[in-house]
Structures are given as C-alpha cells and as structure tokens.
Amino acid sequence: MLKDITFGQYYDATSVVHKCDPRVKILLMIAFIVLIFVSQNMFSLAFACVSVIFVLLISRVPIKLFLKNLKAIWVVLAFTAVINLFYSNTGKVLVSFWIVEITTGGVYRAVFMALRIILLIFISSVLTYTTTPNSLTDGIESLLSPLKYIGLKNAVHIFAMMMTIALRFIPTLIEEAEKIMNAQKARGADLENGSLVERVKALIPILIPLLISSVRRAYELAEAMECRCYNGGVGKTRMKQLTLSVSDLYAIIFIAVFTCGIIGLNIIF
C-alpha cells in the first residue's frame, strides 16, 4: 500500500523540455500560471490551451500521465464548476427552479474556470515530469540565492540541504515503515479492520518506532556528514554547474510569444 506513494514523479525521456535548465523551467511555470489567470476571455484562454497542449506534446511525456493527475483532483474541479454555474446571472436563462437559475453566462463561467484549473495542473505536471527532484532542488537553491544578500546567508544552503536529504530518505523511510508494519502484523496488530478511530489508533505502534529510528538515522547521518568534511556549506563548490543552453533560449522566446499573445488577445476582445 505504501509502494503506491510516488514522489517527484520524474518521467525519463529526451526532449527540449527535459534539457531546459531547472531555473528557467521554474520561472516559466510561474509565468504560465500568472498568465493563465490573466487571460480574461475565451480567445486568450483558447490561446493558452493551445500553448499548454503544445508544451505537453514536445515534453514527450505520455498524455495519459497528465490525465492521471486530473483524476486526483476531479472533486475540486467539479466543485469549482458547480459553484461557478450559479455565480453569474448574465445571458439567457437556461434552467430555472425555486430560487436558482442557470444562465448561459453561468455555464460559460463554469467551463472557463474548470479549464483554467486543468491548464494549471497540466503545466505544473510538466515541471515535475521533466525535472529530476535533484535538479529541481538545485534550481530552487540557485533562484533563492539572492536572499543571501539580505542577511539570509546560510538559510538558502540549509534549505537546499534539507530538501536533498528529505528526497534521499523518502524511499528509505517508506521501506522502514513497511518493515515495521509487517513486524507489528506478525505480532497480531490489525491495521485493516475496525472503525476509523481504531485504525488510527493502530498506527501508533508503527509511528513511534519509525520516529525513533529516524532520530537514530539522523544522528548517524550527521556523523557521516561530518566525516565527509561537511561544515555547514562554507566554501562549498559544486560538481554540476547549472548552465543555460539553446533549449533555454527557445523556452524564453516561447514564453515571450505566449505573454504577448495572451495580453494581446485580452486587449483586442
């Protein structure tokens, strides 16, 4: 059951999107999200749709993986759509009962909002599918590095180190949790039956050993890091330098076109 947890769902392939610098990808994703919200009419949103689909296609990640992500949030999607359905009373009345009436304006709005959310999910999935957790961390560290000029000298490094270690230990801890669960099951623990409260209570004998062993691990890891001359990142260099390539230039040109398109269509219509 714990094996289903996927984290940093990287999909290995060779594409222009995969080759992009993580910093550029993070910035572009932020730009995309902002612009999707900026688009105000059907024309600019349609343009955004086309652009997002274009990005999905050139990323060479199977479309069904993106659709899988939608499945996880369909409740949110349906909820937003239904709420927006009643939100507007412009246009022709389609259905009317008791005090509610559904208008064409409402339907338009519901579709519009749902589409926006779908685009958001798609574009952020592109980032996680095409970037390894490690380069994502590197990208974040590099983007946050200006913070060191405002007195947060070590904070950026510590944050990146924490993320690296967390990513490294997720599979290890999942494995450990599974071992403990099996050990407790062998001792007669019942994790699957009973009421919700009972099942939550049954988790306590799993969480406590897991916590204790994590603390022990942390202690050993700290010693091992010390043995490898770690001193809080002072004077540290990096083996892999982040460098901008041609792919990044394409990405920047693309986002420039996209920005002009959205704003232009917003003004024209």
Partner: peptide, 27 residues
C-alpha cells in the same frame, strides 16, 4: 543507508570533494 546523502550515486560521491571546495572539473 545512513551514510548516503544524495539520491543519485555521482552526486553522493561528490559530496565530500564539494565540501573541500575543489573546482568542478577536479570533483
């Protein structure tokens, strides 16, 4: 398990030399 820091082999091996502040090529 408690000695490896990074989730990619080469990045883990590079951890020590990176802390020593060596140039990327030498690492």
């Amino acid at each position: 398990d408690n000695q490896l820091i990074a989730s990619i082999v080469e990045e883990d091996v590079a951890f020590g030399p990176e802390n020593l502040g060596l140039p990327p090529k030498e690492i």
